[in-house]
Write a protein that binds this DNA or RNA. Structure first.
Lengths: 219, 219
DNA sequence: CTATTATTAGAGTATATACTCTAGCCGTCA
DNA sequence: TGACGGCTAGAGTATATACTCTAATAATAG
């Protein structure tokens, strides 16, 4: 593998583990057993590494959120969207953690992230529409649908942070995978009142699969 | 005013403006035109200042979220809760920004914040119950109510971050006050399907007052 | 084989940051 | 008046961090 790619990979790994703020370029270099000079030969600065990682994240999510325009959406589609998005969130979880700082310190990233958010919101909206056409969700006013899409986005993008802050340090990966799934449960909760009678039971059954089997409220 | 209190106040102000990460203890001292030594006479370290600010935040929110147990809740109560909580969020907006890092670097804060989250979730749940008793909201299963409460919490605590990241740098205070109100709009959106027939119109009218009068989706 | 270019090592630097230390000021109370 | 304790100034320090510079090595093309 090219050194450049190794740097991106190691950075992502370290960022996810320790948080971008706690990972220096020297750490990254040391982790790869290369010299700082080598790292800076491939990247002008730390922001450039982060930006590159963002581009991958963006590409992944954009890929996942493709919406067929020749057919309505099914329950399987919905399940796929939810699982994919939460997987992406997990794979790049450092990103939403220090988001505001990252955007503050990189104009390019700020611009791109804004458009990315926009695309995601539009995609969520289209998914709702597609599910409406598919008879899963009742038709709603555009205004309500948009407000709902935004709420879905807020729940999704805040889920990781909630897990990290509301739980202790007991974030071993198996537990957090389970907990991640609870994010899907939360999103499905948002949809419940809008389900059609035909699909109500099926969606509720699906939702059961993501229910946290833990005694408390998720705390 | 005591120097100690001035330090807390100035820190909060600077943290909110620039983000905790961008504010050093030397900045705070310089801003107050006092010496670093003076600052460290009053606080052992930066974490201590942040912890002190958190205690005030906590006190404020706990105060706002008091729930009368001798009567059901009214629409006015609900409005009060929403406006108060978003005001608190705005006044201490730096806090949720670098939350994960702050909790990572202060064991005390992590513990306290966890309990704080817990209390808030319980309070939201009780508010829903109170509104049910008040005939505003339809009675739901405990499980659904809890999941809804968590969604409300996720929307609320992510609202500031969303504003900061989804909009450009055009965050003058008048605009952001308007935008903050949209957070209430979003929370009310969550409640719509659960309103009783008697209160539906009144809540929808209230919600109208928080509707963003901007052309786009809030981007 | 040689010349040129891409890559890498690793010491080094400028700056920032959290925090310390000592000396002195100032109000109060005996 | 003087001594004492709370408060403050401000220079200073150890460490970290992002990043640079030069020289050496590997790869490649002619």
């Amino acid at each position: 593998m090219k050194t450049r790619d190794k740097i991106i990979l190691a950075s992502l790994e370290l960022f996810n583990e320790r948080g971008e703020r706690n990972v220096t370029t020297n750490h990254i270099a040391a982790h790869l057993a290369i010299s700082p000079g080598n790292l800076y030969y491939h990247f002008r600065n730390k922001s450039d590494i982060i930006y590159e990682i963002f581009l991958e994240y963006e590409k992944l999510v954009d890929y996942y959120l493709q919406i067929p325009d020749d057919r309505p959406l099914t329950l399987d589609d919905m399940k796929f969207y939810l699982e994919s998005v939460f997987d992406g969130l997990w794979a790049y979880r450092f990103f939403h953690r220090d988001l505001e700082f990252l955007l503050d310190s990189d104009e390019r990233l700020r611009q791109d992230y804004r458009e990315f958010t926009n695309r995601c919101l539009v995609a969520i909206d289209r998914i709702f529409l597609g599910l409406t056409d598919g008879g899963v969700i009742q038709r709603q006013s555009e205004e309500l649908r948009r407000a709902m899409s935004l709420n879905v986005w807020l729940v999704i993008t805040n889920w990781m942070a909630f897990l990290k802050t509301a739980h202790g340090t007991e974030m071993d990966s198996s537990l957090s995978t389970k907990r991640m799934r609870q994010g899907i449960y939360q999103v499905l909760t948002l949809e419940i009142p809008y389900l059609t009678a035909e699909f109500y039971d099926r969606v509720m059954t699906l939702r059961e699969q993501y229910r946290p089997d833990l005694p408390d409220n998720g705390i």
